[in-house]
Design a protein around this nucleic acid. Structure first.
Lengths: 230, 230
DNA sequence: CGAGCAGTTGATGAGCTTCAAAGGTAGTGG
DNA sequence: CCACTACCTTTGAAGCTCATCAACTGCTCG
């Protein structure tokens, strides 16, 4: 796996979100670069480090022996993974694009938490948010049809990425159609067909393969909840 | 909702698992009884209390407007729910059987955590375990077929309920077939058919509707991972 | 310019759902 | 104690959604 190159630099002040000063103050992170397609951790690895993304996109996934995989989540700048409180990584992590991130030795992080309870609370909050998202997605995977899944996916992306879900919002999709399929429990063909159908129905616009413009958020929302057909 | 009756008693010493002494020591719980079928909390309710089950079974679920629902998890004795760190309950909770549980006022619990960091760490650990289970189930819902889902479900139950997955282990299923279906993203008919097929294939025995005896854990395990047909 | 990969589109089919009905089980009241 | 009722579960037949297989398009990069 020669896709990752480690550059031993002290963490600068690249963080933006509230609470990040906590992580910054510790000053124990090391920045790492991983090229697109590179593997960061593998499911079952012992958790020696936690990661925090500075730029680029990552996906977390679980796989079955015969090649099927389920993408658990897509992560972007300021997101972290490697939940301490477990001994092994529950998911594999792979870079979708070139990625720069900070790596924290697990033990140092745990020591920092012991000294600074607010940091522990923040990590607890992050775990709760992840849990909430996971539960949403169980509903999606267990009980929504293909159209509802794709609509939900787009709205979820919008909620996380831009400042709100408004008509005209342009989403950046760093991941491939296959990634989206593996996230939604569908096949690449089904995802592709639904994208074009959504476009014909003027729900979205597709300027290029990595961009989606939401043109009718209202109908998309109703569609995501099962109250509409296309 | 006249299904719940509150009996104001101080919490005794009914806990068993490690770490429970922490909760016990606080001494702020109030025991509550809920009859089978009774609703405990509804998705979206503000989180005023956290709960811990003493006896009986509960399920957590999320619903879509048109009646579809996804059961997020089944809970039994010593399990808790009502994750603090969120403002609203992410799921509804309903009693499957008559249930006795302890109710903790959220604020008191948060105060207790501030005084006793070990308690916070324990809750953090519980959230991480739930997250891990949620991720497992996303793989199940997104990428496993019906047979694999049912096999995985039985093995998961076995791992939680008894002391290990051995041939001859007898599982108690307090929930209905409909509940199982809503947990696995299937219909009640499909679940029923698979149960009888598993029985014919001598993977399990079904003495009555609320009991399953695992008669071939090996094959069941291979089946759950997709390495086998029935 | 051509090779190769990602995505789209079409035709067919499998797996699960839906609809329908019978069989069991538990709970109720005479 | 037994019959009656209501619900849960099982079983069967038909239908639909999405997967699979296959061919084609278009973009990217050497």
């Amino acid at each position: 796996m020669n896709t990752s190159s480690i550059s031993q630099e002290r963490l600068g002040s690249t963080f933006e979100k509230p609470g990040d000063d906590l992580l910054e103050r510790i000053g124990l992170g090391v920045t790492i670069s991983v090229h697109a397609g590179g593997t960061i951790v593998i499911e079952g690895d012992p958790i020696d480090h936690c990661f925090r993304i500075l730029s680029g996109s990552v996906h977390l996934y679980k796989a079955v022996a015969d090649g099927r995989r389920q993408i658990i989540d897509f992560l972007g700048a300021t997101d972290g993974f490697g939940v301490i409180g477990q001994s092994e990584h529950a998911c594999s992590a792979e870079a979708i694009t070139d990625v720069v991130m900070v790596r924290y030795p697990r033990q140092s992080l745990e020591a920092a938490i012991a000294e600074e309870p607010a940091l522990g609370q923040r990590l607890f909050g992050m775990a709760c948010t992840e849990l909430f998202r996971a539960q949403q997605r169980m509903l999606l995977l267990g009980r929504k049809n293909a159209d509802e899944r794709v609509a939900s996916f787009l709205l979820d992306l919008a909620a996380r990425q831009s400042d709100g879900k408004r008509n005209g919002t342009c989403l950046h999709l760093p991941m491939s159609r296959q990634d989206i399929a593996d996230h939604l429990g569908l096949t690449i063909e089904t995802v592709s067909r639904i994208f074009t159908r959504f476009k014909r129905a003027r729900l979205v616009d597709l300027p290029d393969r990595h961009a989606v413009v939401l043109t009718d958020v209202d109908r998309l929302s109703r569609l995501a909840e099962g109250g509409l057909d296309v």
